[in-house]
Every structure is written in structure tokens, then in C-alpha cells.
Amino acid sequence: MADHELRTVVSGMSFTECPRWHEGRLWFVDFYTHVVCSVAEDGSDLRTEVEVPQQPSGLGWLPDGRLLYVSMRDRLVMRREPDGTSVVHADVSDHVTGHANDMVVDAEGRAWLGNFGFDLMGGADIETTGLLRIDPDGTVTAVADDLWFPNGSVVTPDGGTLIVDETLGNRISAFDIHPDGSLGERRDWATFGELSTSRALAEAIPQGKYAPDGCTLDADGCLWVADALGGRVCRVREGGEILETVSPGTGAFACMLGGSDGRTLFICCAPDFDEHARSAAREATIRAVTVDVPHAGLP
């Protein structure tokens, strides 16, 4: 790794997530202050871009530059128009069984969206769930099912493969993207352990060997993946081999390669992901470290 020294880019947040490098700035959401923000690479010029009362999550941009963002609790994907107003891009409430969550928007303007699948913060039993494709006109189509908390996702540079983290499945899955927008059969991109033998959350979590959350792709085809239960971000080769590890000394929940040369790894950090604790505190940060291989693909 080029530079092992972690530096703090943003501090004083509730729970940062969904980092994206876009047009020379780092964009991210802060769950419990209900905002989408952007900041310069060095941490200066922090801006509130959009307020999202029902809790923001995944971010992406249509080919014409309009921002898409997830409003989690009311299960909407919103679109920011050129005049700054926000409108509903897609209502997914009939298609999801938990909070709408992270997404990636591909070069065609198709948004690939996951959801919790169950009441995570309420401690409900785990239920598998599906993946949605939202076309540029807002049409919603179910494209995959039986996923264990589909979360951070990337699209490869050729636009032909969607890679999806399954946070509670000990695995990262991949799908071929067909020209018509349908997906091929799920296949293992990386596995870290077996699927849980229990759907009870308190029993399943200890069986997690690696809980892949947010991720980012590099030019060698490897993923940097945040481990939501392990307090680390690892560079993972297809198949599951861990090549490098960054441990920020706290929880790590998402990451993004960006910066002027694409070699800055931004990491969303917080003590834990407990909704009540994070809502009451301002302990979340975004930290950064320099790595050797630059960003590739989307986001």
C-alpha cells in the first residue's frame, strides 16, 4: 500500500454512508441528520446538497447529470432536477420488504437497488429479499431474489457485470447484465463462509465471517469491501482472497476510491450501526488512505 497513514476528511456526523466520487468532490449521505453532502478532497468546503427527511441512502447520477438518491423510510428513489427541485423518480414501496437501501446507477441510467428485507433495527428474523432495476423513465422491475441483505454494489467498466454485497450472507454475488437489462443467474464472486443456519438475527450475526457492506472496484478488478461487523476494509480478489486490510480502529461501513488520481480510499466510519446510538451522537467520520491501484467501474 502506498501510504498506510489514515487521515480524517469529515467528522462530527451521525452515520456516514454511500460515498461517491463525482466531478472532483466526495459525495456521501449522513443517515440521521437526513442530508446528502459533498466535500472537497481535503475535507474543505463541506456542503449540504439535499435534505432527505425520510433518511438518505444510495446515490448515483443519470447520464444527463441529474442526481438520484434513495429516501429509505418512505421507499422512494428521488431525482434532483436542474433547477434544484426534487421529484419522485420511482416509488418502490410495493417491491421491497424493508428500508430501501444502497444502489448503483450504471452508464445507461439504470439504478440497481437493494433493500433490508426485514426490520433490522427492530431485531426481526432475517428474511431474504430481492434486487430491483429502475429504468431511466422510473419503471421498476424485480431482477433477482433470495439475497441476504443486498447492499453495496458496483458495475464493471464494460457495463456487463453487476457485483452485489450480501451483508448477512458471508458472500459477494455477481450477475451478468444482459442487453435488455435482465440479469443472469446469481454466481459467487467471493465467499467468506457458509450461509447462516439460523434466521434469528442474534444467532446469525456471530456466524458472519465477513459482512460485506459498501464497496468500490479498482482497475485490477479487485474490490475494496467494508466489513460491517469486523471494523475493517479489505481489498478482495474474485474468489475471496483478502490481499490488503485497512483497520481504522472503529466500525467501517462503506468505502469509495476517488481523489484526483483515483487512489484515495475514503472510508465511512462509526462506532457501530445501532440506529438509536448513532442518532444521539455525532461520532461518525470519513477517513482516507492512499492505495496503489486506482478506481474503476461505477460508482
Rank of each mutant, 00 (worst) to 15 (best):
M1K: 07
A2H: 08
D3V: 06
D3G: 06
D3F: 02
E5G: 04
V9G: 03
V10S: 04
V10R: 03
S11Q: 09
M13S: 10
S14Q: 08
E17M: 10
P19L: 11
H22S: 10
L26H: 07
L26A: 13
L26D: 10
F31Y: 09
Y32I: 08
H34S: 15
V35Y: 00
V36I: 15
C37L: 14
S44N: 14
S44V: 06
S44Y: 01
V50G: 08
E51G: 12
P53H: 07
Q55Y: 09
P56Y: 04
G58A: 12
W61D: 13
L62R: 13
P63G: 12
L67N: 12
R75F: 07
R80E: 11
D83I: 04
T85L: 11
T85V: 10
V87N: 13
D91Q: 12
V92T: 11
D94T: 06
G98I: 08
G98Y: 02
A100V: 12
M103L: 15
A107E: 15
E108P: 01
E108M: 01
R110N: 14
G114P: 05
N115I: 08
D119M: 09
M121Q: 15
G122F: 05
G123A: 13
D125E: 15
D125H: 13
E127D: 14
T128W: 05
T129I: 11
L132P: 06
R133K: 13
P136L: 04
G138H: 08
T141S: 13
A144E: 03
D145M: 10
L147T: 03
W148G: 00
P150V: 07
N151F: 01
G152E: 02
S153N: 11
S153D: 03
V155C: 07
V155D: 03
G159L: 00
L162H: 02
V164D: 00
D165A: 15
T167P: 04
L168V: 06
I172D: 00
A174E: 09
D176V: 11
D176Y: 09
D176Q: 11
I177A: 08
H178F: 07
D180H: 13
G181K: 06
S182V: 10
E185K: 13
E185V: 11
T191P: 00
E194G: 08
L195S: 07
S196Y: 13
R199C: 02
R199K: 13
L201W: 06
A202T: 09
P206E: 11
Q207G: 07
K209M: 11
K209L: 09
Y210S: 01
C215V: 07
L217R: 07
A219T: 01
A219M: 07
C222T: 00
L223R: 08
W224Y: 11
A226W: 00
D227E: 04
D227L: 10
A228C: 14
G230P: 04
G240M: 08
V246I: 14
V246M: 05
P248M: 07
A252V: 10
F253Q: 09
F253D: 04
M256K: 12
M256D: 02
L257D: 03
S260W: 04
T264W: 05
F266S: 02
F266M: 06
F266E: 03
A270Y: 00
P271M: 13
P271G: 14
D272H: 14
E275L: 12
H276W: 05
R278I: 10
R278S: 14
R282P: 01
A284E: 03
A284F: 03
T285I: 06
I286R: 02
R287H: 04
A288I: 05
T290M: 13
H295I: 00
